[in-house]
């Protein structure tokens, strides 16, 4: 991705639209796999949830306002409208947290991204009653924020590496929250589907 690849720069609505369209494309390729992974531990709708969310975001992309706060808020509303499943609600929650931090800004410095991720992570944690270490998407987001702190340049690659490491780190642990908790023994050896979904999203941002 132009903005995050290789240099410090400013993020505008153009970059957000670009990110949405890249992620939408990638999510379409991986939706079945995400559903299958989710089906081993949950209700098996994660891929569909993400596909619905990003298809809708791609539809409204051209109409998103330049004010990034308003754009993130509109994105949160759109996601919540097409998917009231738990991951859809969490994604909307994260976007809304980012919206609050960005209201009135048409540009964000790329170094502000870790703060947005942490704000999103915090709010998602409250809303989903999950903590870091529970083997959820929060652990992947937190790892991404830390990677951005230490690698402000070449950031997408650093984030991908960090998320991959987090997936490995948690693979043999038990899920501690959500429906997967009921099958916590079965979750050992399996990647958390929410983390995999986040990996798909950040993977889509890497320039091919």
């Amino acid at each position: 991705m132009r903005v995050l690849e290789g240099r410090l720069t400013m993020i505008t609505i153009v970059d957000v639209r670009d990110a949405i369209s890249r992620i939408q494309h990638q999510v379409q390729q991986t939706a079945d796999d995400l559903c299958a992974r989710d089906g081993q531990l949950g209700d098996g709708d994660l891929g569909i949830t993400l596909e619905k969310a990003f298809n809708r975001l791609a539809e409204i992309g051209p109409t998103l306002p330049e004010d990034l706060g308003k754009a993130f808020a509109a994105a949160a509303a759109a996601v919540s409208k097409v998917s009231s499943s738990s991951f859809g609600t969490l994604l909307a929650t994260g976007l809304l947290a980012a919206a609050k931090r960005s209201i009135g800004k048409t540009e964000l410095h790329s170094t502000a991204v870790p703060d947005l991720l942490r704000a999103a992570c915090q709010k998602m944690s409250e809303r989903g009653s999950a903590s870091l270490g529970d083997k959820t998407v929060l652990d992947a987001i937190d790892a991404a924020a830390r990677a951005l702190d230490s690698h402000p340049k070449d950031s997408v690659s650093a984030v991908i590496t960090a998320v991959d490491e987090t997936l490995s780190l948690f693979r043999d642990r038990q899920c501690k929250i959500g429906r997967a908790r009921i099958f916590s023994d079965r979750s050992i050896g399996l990647d958390d589907p929410g983390m995999v979904a986040f990996r798909v999203m950040v993977g889509a941002l890497k320039s091919s």
């Binding site: 706060g69 308003k70 808020a73 949160a76 509303a77 919540s80 009231s84 609600t89 909307a92 929650t93 809304l96 919206a99 609050k100 209201i103 809303r127």
Partner: peptide
């Protein structure tokens, strides 16, 4: 609760 809290945050903006 989850959705109404989020709705409150949306309109707060």
């Amino acid at each position: 609760i989850m959705n109404f809290e989020m709705a409150g945050e949306m309109v707060e903006l």
